[in-house]
């Protein structure tokens, strides 16, 4: 007991323990998302997905995970062994650091830094490096293509994401995600997607632009996490899973985990920037730190559900279409929005 007390008195130990908290969340969340994804996918295709492990197969994600952990870790002979080994960890680090600035509730946020939104955009670039590294180190043409595609895609879509974040920041006047969320507290009408808590004239004028921005941010975030219809880096039908091709066992699991954790991150970004983060849609009703966690995760899950729904609806884009969408549609529209929002805020 005394030992634990001295341990808890140590600042370092406490901060390590606290920073491991999101890991627990990620793993639980990924299990739930995996199950949901498989079930939704199956039912969309009039199938039923797994039914045998537990009631309606609820234990299947756990079984899958155990299977992945036990599998042999195969490293190709001609691969660059060091980089091959390091790549999954770098990709996962990039995913994980983003959780530091997600405001789960009004009292829980990993690190309440003033540049949270900016940091989130930067953290995404680390994932790109991990994927590029994996693609290169596998010494396999599919992997290399996957890596290069992924990098090109993420760089192109980082621009719309950053611009959309800037619009949110322009309205709230803070880069701190906690502040951004607080700004939108107090009911569904105060959410940024509906113009935020501004005088109603301004609000009405802002609304079309915030809705467009919100929508673009959502599209760009799907592209950032490499999901269908933007899953060119994996493209199992042409690139044999892309950068994942040579990975197996634990390392593959890392990529997998990182991908699904990223799914939550981008949804959380959309939610905390435009949908009021942890704030309750009913104003003071059902609000508070604990309800905050509930609202935050459930809003993010709603977005994950929509992403799953989109994934099982749309086919993959072509590479040139991908670039067209980013550079000729999303980015110019966001410039228009930035200009308009700036103008409205000034007058």
């Amino acid at each position: 007991m005394e030992f634990i007390q001295t341990l808890l008195a140590n600042q370092l130990v406490v901060s390590i323990l606290l920073s491991a908290l999101p890991l627990v969340f990620i793993i639980l969340m990924v299990l739930v998302v995996l199950y949901t994804e498989m079930k939704v996918a199956a039912h969309i295709q009039d199938r039923v997905a797994y039914m045998r492990t537990g009631w309606h197969g609820v234990l299947q994600p756990i079984a899958d995970m155990l299977k992945l952990l036990q599998k042999e870790d195969i490293i190709p002979t001609k691969a660059d062994k060091l980089l091959f080994r390091a790549a999954p960890f770098i990709a996962f680090t990039g995913t994980y650091v983003a959780y530091a600035v997600l405001p789960f509730s009004s009292i829980y946020i990993g690190s309440n830094i003033n540049l949270g939104a900016f940091f989130l955009v930067a953290a995404g670039s680390l994932v790109v490096i991990g994927i590029l590294m994996a693609g290169w180190a596998s010494n396999n043409k599919w992997s290399l293509f996957g890596g290069v595609r992924s990098a090109a895609q993420m760089i192109s879509y980082e621009i719309p994401t950053a611009l959309a974040v800037i619009i949110a920041v322009m309205i709230t006047g803070s880069l701190n995600l906690q502040e951004v969320t607080k700004f939108q507290d107090g009911g569904i009408g105060n959410w940024l997607v509906f113009g935020g808590p501004l005088p109603w004239m301004q609000k009405l004028m802002l609304m079309p632009f915030t809705v467009i921005t919100f929508f673009i941010l959502f599209v760009a975030s799907i592209a950032e996490v490499n999901r269908t219809p933007f899953d060119l880096p994996e493209a199992e039908s042409e690139l044999v899973q892309g950068f994942n091709t040579e990975y197996s066992g634990m390392r593959f699991a890392m990529f997998y985990l990182s991908e699904y954790a990223n799914l939550f991150t981008v949804s959380a970004v959309v939610v905390s920037l435009f949908l009021g983060g942890w704030s309750s849609p009913f104003g003071a009703f059902m609000s508070g730190p604990v309800w905050g966690v509930f609202w935050f995760t459930s809003k993010a899950f709603l977005f994950i559900l929509i992403q799953i729904w989109i994934r099982w609806t749309l086919p993959r884009l072509r590479v040139d279409q991908l670039m067209y969408v980013s550079w000729k549609v999303l980015t110019p529209w966001l410039f228009v929005c930035i200009f308009a929002v700036g103008l409205i805020l000034v007058i």
Binding site: F118, A122, L126, L132
Partner: peptide, 25 residues
Amino acid sequence: DFIAITQLLIYVGGIMVLMLFSVML
């Protein structure tokens, strides 16, 4: 802190990726 994150965004996310691109292509 702003410079630090900019460093990450520009150098890691932009310059590094471009460099790797040019090497790989």
